[in-house]
């Protein structure tokens, strides 16, 4: 455990001096918090939208139940942006992990690091946690800020209850970090197999694509993200993560990295 903390300490000391990483960690949460709040603000200001529900997909209207047309429309928009919120714990850690690996490569620090009595598992866990913790904390903090401001902005208790739905709490608290863990493991695995670790970042960021797919599917009304979809996503991700963590330790070959990185 002390070696894992040493790796985390080292990663944070180094990676947070990178301006792009800092930008991702600070700016993205602010943006993703502001967007749904702006939607709530607009929804609240335009009360005359009430009653016109033609732009809302029928299955979503069904989900809205007793909500007014404006409240239902606001809920739909907020739901869409809350999906983006789930990308945060993926985007931040993958950026951190990729840059930490690029750093190891460009400064050729990995060989002396691997020469210490650290196990591959300790090194990978340290690197994963160093990437995961800031992303998850930034997401949780942003969601907390969003919840507080949403509470102050939304007059309808029913709308507030639906915005701060347990489904979204599950999504932010569990699904997001599980998605992040998958992204980090893919980053680490790919980086041990390619000569340019930036490829790893690009490949890992492709994990955002299914999430974007869900985002657009919901906008056009093809898919409705509800508690069942979120629970299913959590179960699938848990299984994927278990497989990726185990595969990651096996695939992260010291020899391949030392002899193939040029």
């Amino acid at each position: 455990m002390p070696k894992i903390w040493t790796i985390i300490d080292k990663e944070w000391a180094e990676v947070f001096k990178n301006r792009l990483v800092l930008f991702t960690v600070v700016f993205m949460p602010i943006l993703f918090t502001a967007l749904p709040l702006i939607m709530i603000g607009i929804g609240g200001a335009q009360a005359d939208l009430g009653g016109d529900a033609t732009d809302i997909p029928p299955q979503f209207l069904e989900m809205c139940g007793d909500l007014t047309g404006t409240a239902c429309f606001t809920l739909m928009m907020v739901n869409q942006f809350l999906l983006l919120f789930m990308m945060l714990p993926l985007m931040i850690p993958v950026t951190i992990a990729a840059y930490s690996i690029v750093g190891e490569k460009t400064t050729r620090c990995l060989e002396p690091l691997l020469a210490t009595p650290i196990t591959t598992a300790e090194l990978l866990i340290g690197k994963s946690l160093a990437a995961l913790i800031p992303g998850v904390l930034a997401t949780w903090l942003s969601f907390g800020v969003f919840a507080v401001i949403a509470y102050m902005l939304v007059q309808s208790p029913e709308l507030l209850r639906r915005i701060l739905d347990p489904m979204w709490i599950t999504a932010i608290v569990f699904v997001g970090p599980l998605l992040a863990l998958a992204g980090i493991n893919v980053t680490l695995m790919v980086s041990s197999r390619v000569s340019d670790p930036r490829v790893a970042e690009q490949v890992s960021m492709m994990l955002v694509l299914p999430l974007l797919g869900v985002f657009f599917a919901q906008i056009v009304g093809v898919l409705l993200v509800n508690a069942q979809v979120m629970q299913l996503a959590a179960v699938i991700l848990l299984a994927i993560d278990a497989g990726l963590v185990s595969l990651g330790v096996r695939v992260f070959q010291r020899e391949t990295i030392l002899t193939k990185w040029k």
Partner: peptide
């Protein structure tokens, strides 16, 4: 090692 490999930052 052949190259010092220190963390520059």
């Amino acid at each position: 090692t052949e190259t010092p490999g220190m963390y520059d930052r």
